[in-house]
Computed example of a mutant assay.
Amino acid sequence: MTLHSGARPHPVLGLFVSAPSLAAAERAARAVCLRALAGEAVPRGIGLARCEAPLLAPYYERLLSAPAPAPAGVDAICKGRFVQPPGC
């Protein structure tokens, strides 16, 4: 669980949920938040605005599209030659 109290326009509570589907994860997160908000220690006026999973695909697409360095040794062995080194 992470709290992003400076997020605008509202604070954000992040939960990491393991579930069989996105819909199940969102339902579980909503249930946890509503249960917490039903507690006696919650100040008046605090409520759940929405419960959803953020779209992280663009972040991972950027990671996957970045060129990766060749593993150590492979670049030195194969540089300028297109033969399979012994033992590969």
Rank of each mutant, 00 (worst) to 15 (best):
L64I: 02
G6S: 15
A53F: 04
R81M: 05
L48R: 09
A66I: 02
G45I: 10
P71G: 03
C78I: 01
R27V: 08
L56F: 15
P69D: 10
S21N: 11
A38H: 07
A24M: 07
P71C: 04
A68E: 07
R27N: 11
P86L: 10
A25P: 00
E61H: 09
E52L: 14
A28G: 05
L56R: 14
P58S: 12
L37N: 04
R35A: 06
H4A: 14
T2G: 08
V83N: 09
L48K: 10
A23D: 15
P86M: 06
E61G: 07
V42E: 03
L13T: 00
A36N: 05
V17C: 00
A23Q: 13
Q84I: 15
M1H: 08
R81K: 14
Q84E: 10
E61I: 06
L63G: 10
G80M: 03
L48H: 10
H10R: 08
Y60K: 03
L55Q: 09
P43T: 07
L55S: 10
P54Y: 14
P20I: 09
C78M: 05
A23P: 03
F82M: 11
R35C: 04
P54Q: 14
L13S: 00
A49K: 05
Y60F: 15
L63E: 10
S5I: 03
P20H: 09
A31E: 15
H4M: 12
Y60P: 00
R44P: 15
I77G: 08
V17L: 00
S21K: 13
C78N: 03
C33K: 10
A76Y: 04
L48Y: 07
R50P: 00
G73P: 09
A76N: 06
F82Y: 14
Y59G: 03
L63T: 05
R50V: 02
L22E: 15
R44M: 08
E26P: 01
R8Y: 04
A24F: 01
V74F: 10
A76R: 13
P67D: 09
A24G: 05
A19R: 13
G14C: 13
G6R: 14
G87R: 01
V12L: 06
L22Y: 06
P69A: 13
R8Q: 08
R62G: 12
G80P: 08
G87N: 03
V83K: 12
R27K: 15
L3D: 07
R30A: 02
G47A: 08
L13F: 00
L56G: 12
V83I: 12
F82S: 12
R44I: 06
L22T: 14
R27E: 15
G14P: 00
